[in-house]
């Protein structure tokens, strides 16, 4: 059975998480006792202020330039400090805007599988689910997906559903003058986005049939781009899920389309790998070319002026074998 790496990755994450817990800190995951890294870790934990911790990180980076843990300290130090400071400030913050910004920083920092547990705990502490806006739910859901915190994803998808309506959208923007058509579409799009995450959560919890059903529903609701494809990550998640149940042809197509039209390079790489497993004679690049021809939208005619105010219409170029339409602005 083809095992897609997004799913394979989770077992590696569990191992990494266990190692981090044993070591007590991401800063010094592998340091032996007496090692400068171990000493820095102890000092780091004992330090009473974020500033003191920052000084310890700086000292380590200055005095132990050849230490194999240097990279880990460089990478983990600022993140830990930013997290610590944001967490501390958050407890004191009274201004709603500041509070919301700090919550956003923390969510961003914790949106990695190694912070799965911390993410779940912190989200529980930071938010009162009943008072959250749709946008806040979505922010939490996106961060929780990054952390593989599936119960958090499920809770917030369920809690946000009553806000995924045209009425709730209109209420969220009382000063804006939207058409009824736009508002109806925005409500559907909200539902589609939530269904996308619900499907991906189901897939990651092994409920593949439920996931596929949810993706199909999401595809009818989520906003599509000029190219007729969902603007969000639906095709990426759908494609990964199809690969995982060995629906290789369908999975490759979804991922390849996400790559071509949503510029999802990870999806493109995964499609290329899975395509090799299918074992077709046709080269992958030729397959992509065929797919583009199958899904290519047509250019509608348009007319615009040049800088002498002469009008040009696209129709006048139709005899050309190839045209590059380049959109730009001067910076």
């Amino acid at each position: 059975m083809y095992r897609h790496k997004k799913f394979r990755h989770q077992s590696l994450v569990l191992v990494a998480l266990a190692l981090a817990c044993l070591a007590g800190s991401a800063v010094a995951a592998d340091a032996p006792p007496g090692d400068p890294l171990e000493m820095a870790r102890s000092a780091f934990q004992a330090a009473e202020s974020p500033e003191a911790r920052l000084a310890i990180v700086k000292t380590f980076l200055t005095n132990h330039r050849d230490h194999p843990g240097l990279g880990a300290v460089s990478a983990a130090g600022p993140n830990l400090l930013a997290g610590e400071m944001a967490e501390k400030e958050l407890k004191l913050a009274k201004d709603p805007e500041l509070k919301s910004n700090l919550q956003g920083i923390l969510l961003g920092l914790l949106s990695e599988p190694k912070y799965q547990n911390k993410m779940q705990k912190l989200v529980g502490e930071m938010y009162d689910v009943a008072d959250m806006s749709y946008v806040e739910h979505l922010e939490v859901i996106r961060a929780a997906v990054g952390a593989n915190a599936w119960p958090t994803v499920d809770n917030h998808v369920a809690a946000a559903m009553h806000l995924a309506t045209p009425e709730a959208f209109r209420e969220a923007y009382p000063d804006r003058d939207f058409s009824d058509e736009y508002i109806a579409e925005a409500g559907r799009n909200r539902q589609g986005l939530l269904q996308t995450f619900a499907g991906w959560s189901a897939a990651n919890q092994g409920q593949m049939k439920e996931a596929l059903k949810t993706f199909e529903a999401a595809a009818t609701m989520v906003r599509t781009s000029f190219f007729g494809l969902p603007e969000n990550d639906l095709y990426r998640y759908w494609g990964y899920t199809l690969l995982n149940i060995s629906e290789l042809e369908a999975g490759v197509e979804k991922l390849a389309l996400a790559n071509i039209y949503n510029r999802d390079s990870d999806a493109g790489e995964e499609a290329r790998e899975a395509y090799a497993v299918i074992g077709r004679k046709q080269a992958f690049d030729d397959y992509l070319w065929e797919l583009r021809q199958k899904h290519a939208p047509k250019v509608e005619n348009f007319t615009a002026v040049d800088y002498t105010d002469a009008a040009h219409s696209y129709d006048s170029l139709r005899g050309k074998k190839a045209t590059l339409l380049a959109f730009w602005f001067p910076t």
């Binding site: 190219f227 047509k298 250019v299 005899g319 050309k320 190839a322 045209t323 339409l325 959109f327």
Partner: peptide, 10 residues
């Protein structure tokens, strides 16, 4: 940029 063929397909 959009690259378009002679049939108008992007």
């Amino acid at each position: 940029s959009f690259l378009i063929d002679g049939e108008g397909n992007i």
